[in-house]
């Protein structure tokens, strides 16, 4: 934490611009002393309406913690719920009690943190469609302002990657996605990005910044930054990070400078993920007719309908191929 504070301090000294959103995530920030955490955040040049999100494990959320976050300026918490079904949590290797989610949401609300995101994972082998239905039902009952739901993904190097029998099935994930989308939409949560739904005005501004190719600075090990087409990421291990901060050297592990073509492709890929979609004039795909069933058109904009969102990459590639 000291290194983090020092890192932020150096950035501010180097003329870091005022920020409008802060997101604390990766690992489990809720394990850190909240006062220490908030002191780091408050060392940043924050705007007056700054959105400050902290990711929490429902197991270590208490009213005291929420009060500490609130008084430190936090506006939003994101709870790693994954599922409200213990059988599914077990498959995912998470042992928390779904009851903790309810108390965590209560604690946040009591402390006055109104923006609450519940983060879900679906698609594990062994999870039934009814498991998903009941999880979403319980989530809606908790009345969060925001829900993220991601399909379980096989990441290289993870235990899951070594066990093909547990690989999620594309059709199963697609079915579950469509169910989640319709349940949430019916309950008044609008989809504004493939995997994100919110009450009106509760969209996560920090996420929107990512998806609009905005600039952001990442602090801490393995944190990513983006400044005007230059994407970089910090060294992965805490030890290396601490050493580099102490010696005043660059924390970067590596970076890439995006060329125009890459930036355009990325912009299209990201824009297609979102509710606003893309300008109709960009649609030059030779096989547009075939794509029509995945699109909706409105006011000169083209958006992906729920089935289209599921194959957003394929559509992006086709649009690029035609441009």
């Amino acid at each position: 934490m000291a290194a983090l504070l020092q890192d932020v301090g150096q950035a501010v000294a180097n003329g870091m611009q005022t920020v409008d959103t802060v997101f604390v995530g990766g690992g489990t920030p809720s394990l850190v002393d909240p006062d220490l955490l908030m002191s780091v955040i408050n060392a940043l040049p924050l705007s007056s309406k700054c959105e400050i999100t902290i990711e929490c494990n429902p197991d270590n959320v208490s009213e005291a913690l929420m009060h500490a976050y609130k008084s430190g300026g936090a506006t939003r918490i994101s709870l790693g719920v994954q599922s409200m079904r213990t059988n599914v949590l077990k498959i995912l290797g998470r042992e928390h009690n779904p009851e903790n989610v309810r108390t965590a949401v209560e604690a946040a609300k009591t402390a006055g943190i109104d923006e609450i995101n519940l983060d879900l994972i679906y698609g594990s082998v062994g999870e039934s469609i009814d498991d998903v239905r009941s999880t979403i039902g319980e989530v809606i009952a908790l009345q969060p302002t925001h829900v993220s739901a991601y399909g379980l993904t096989v990441e290289p190097g993870t235990p899951l990657a070594r066990d093909p029998s547990r690989f999620p099935d594309d059709d199963d994930e697609a079915d579950k996605y469509l169910l989640i989308n319709s349940l949430l939409e019916d309950a008044g949560y609008a989809n504004y990005e493939i995997s994100n739904w919110s009450r009106k005005g509760s969209e996560c501004r920090h996420n929107l910044l990512y998806w609009r190719q905005g600039n952001y600075l990442g602090f801490g090990c393995a944190a990513h930054s983006h400044v005007n087409g230059r994407r970089s990421w910090n060294v992965r291990t805490p030890d290396r990070y601490i050493d580099l901060v102490a010696s005043g050297e660059s924390r970067e592990a590596s970076f890439e400078e995006l060329g125009q073509e890459a930036r355009t492709l990325e912009a299209l890929q990201l824009a297609l993920r979102m509710r606003d979609g893309i300008d109709e004039r960009h649609l030059l795909a030779p096989d547009l007719e075939m794509l029509e069933e995945f699109l909706t058109r409105e006011n000169g904009r083209i958006r992906l309908n729920p089935r289209g969102r599921l194959v957003a990459n394929e559509i992006a590639v086709r649009l690029v191929a035609g441009s």
């Binding site: 399909g151 393995a222 990513h224 983006h226 994407r231 990421w233 492709l265 089935r307 194959v311 394929e314």
Partner: peptide
């Protein structure tokens, strides 16, 4: 049967580079 999904993973700041590279690969594959 028609392909039903090719994207459902999270896409935060740290995922964007990887996602784009995946897409570039998909495009090259085409």
């Amino acid at each position: 049967k028609a392909k039903r999904k090719d994207v459902l993973a999270k896409c935060y700041g740290g995922d964007i580079t990887r996602k784009r590279k995946l897409l570039e690969k998909q495009k090259e594959g085409k």
